[in-house]
């Protein structure tokens, strides 16, 4: 059974096949997730240019809206201090929305690429936990999202955002965005697993993202939009998240909006994770 060159403990190699207990099954499943996560993080480290440019686009949006379009937007709100709401404070939630939604394209493209190159083919013939391929990918992409959020926070501070509701509320807003981002990444995973190649994955992602991001209160207040559109804008997931985190970051009633956000997040997990797993199983 073993090779001529076999000098090491055969028992070590055979141990996985001696019916693992459920405890060790869980241990190995977690180890698989960690292995795939590590692999994807190494890729980020080896392609610093890609990481750099994933922050360039949101930075350009900050500058564009802060200095070009911002002046033309009429805001009605006020800060908790009673002062008139400056556009830069309004903008922060929109920038997070933009960074997180566009950041997910990498998940779709990456998965489509792994399918294309045959790496996932190899994974399928390994005794690993199958969901680890998706979990490891999404976790690594979440880490990238954290990085982008940190950069965007610094960028916001640089152009005049001064955390009017304090650090704690701001951290709560960031946390909400990250949980939402993780749910959204499973949606991008579905796209990546459905596309025939990585270019297609990108092409599919854009038309889904655009209406969500721009038919939203990300960059302009909703009250100038036509009534029929306002209904969509204020209830679609990205719109709800923007309103909730904006309330957390600049003031206003939060409870109902945060509740709605959590409802969307739970709903997205409940729908997107099973679809992604199903797509992964079916795809051959």
């Amino acid at each position: 059974m073993t090779l001529a060159t076999s000098t090491t403990k055969t028992a070590d190699f055979m141990s996985p096949s001696t019916g693992p207990s459920s405890g060790s099954r869980l241990y190995w499943a977690m180890a698989d997730v960690l292995t795939i996560t590590k692999r994807n993080l190494i890729r980020f480290r080896r392609t610093p240019d890609a990481l750099f440019f994933s922050t360039v686009q949101p930075i350009m949006f900050v500058l564009l809206f802060r200095y070009v379009f911002g002046g033309a937007v009429k805001l009605g709100g006020t800060l908790p201090t009673g002062a008139k709401l400056p556009y830069v404070d309004f903008l922060m939630a929109g920038i997070f929305a933009q960074s997180i939604s566009f950041g997910g394209i990498g998940t779709a493209v990456g998965l489509a690429e792994d399918l294309q190159t045959g790496l996932i083919e190899r994974f399928r013939a390994l005794p690993m936990a199958r969901f680890a391929v998706l979990a490891g990918r999404t976790i690594a992409d979440l880490v990238r999202n954290v990085f982008v959020i940190v950069v965007m926070t610094a960028m916001g501070a640089l152009v005049g955002f001064d955390f009017p509701t304090g650090g704690l509320a701001f951290i709560a807003a960031v946390a909400l965005w990250l949980v939402f981002a993780y749910a959204l990444l499973w949606g991008f995973a579905v796209i990546g697993l459905s596309a025939s190649n990585s270019e297609t994955a990108q092409v599919i992602a854009f038309p889904i993202l655009f209406p969500l991001l721009f038919a939203s209160p990300a960059f302009v207040p909703v009250y100038d939009m036509p009534g029929w559109l306002q209904g969509f804008v204020t209830h679609q997931p990205l719109g709800v998240l923007i309103d909730a985190t904006r309330a957390l970051m600049v003031g206003g009633p939060t409870a109902s909006l945060v509740g709605q956000s959590l409802a969307w997040i739970v709903g997205m997990f409940a729908v997107l994770v099973p679809i992604a797993v199903w797509r992964y199983r079916e795809r051959s």
């Binding site: 070590d12 996985p16 190995w28 292995t35 692999r39 890729r43 190159t117 045959g118 190899r122």
Partner: peptide
């Protein structure tokens, strides 16, 4: 098709596959 990760080193690729083989 050589099913390897082009961004990982040779050793990292082998390590990844080994770990996923539960060694």
């Amino acid at each position: 098709n050589a099913a390897v990760d082009p961004y990982l080193t040779g050793r990292e690729n082998l390590t990844m596959v080994g770990r996923l083989n539960r060694l």
